[in-house]
């Protein structure tokens, strides 16, 4: 397959994830959609790495995975904290940042 196919697939996946972030209200699903967007970026990075025959893009993709894992850990911690403090699981209802 040509590289452009992978890039177009990653563009579609990124936009599906972006639409999910915009329309879903459950913060957990919003985090899942962020994962979709990060993975679409990873796919594009790996495709470009293959196009150049250079491994640097794969290192970048690995770093993106690390950052995604950190984001998941902190995001899920925040969601569990919201649940404990009886804050509604609705991103539209979260309009003020208070502890």
């Amino acid at each position: 397959m040509n590289v452009v196919w992978f890039l177009c697939l990653s563009a579609v996946l990124f936009c599906i994830g972006g639409a999910g972030v915009l329309i879903r209200r459950n913060p957990l699903v919003v985090l899942l959609c962020l994962e979709l967007m990060l993975n679409a970026g990873n796919l594009a990075l790996v495709a470009f790495s293959r196009m150049h025959g250079n491994g640097d893009g794969q290192i970048f993709a690995l770093v993106v995975m690390v950052v995604a894992a950190c984001e998941v850990v902190v995001g899920l911690g925040v969601i569990v904290g919201m649940y404990r403090n009886r804050i509604a699981e609705d991103v539209d209802a979260m309009s003020e940042l208070r502890g």
Partner: peptide
């Protein structure tokens, strides 16, 4: 994004890679 990918003049995009 499609416009950027397909409309770019990079010939390498239309190959299987290096």
């Amino acid at each position: 994004l499609f416009f950027a990918f397909i409309g770019s003049g990079l010939e390498a995009l239309d190959s299987r890679g290096a």
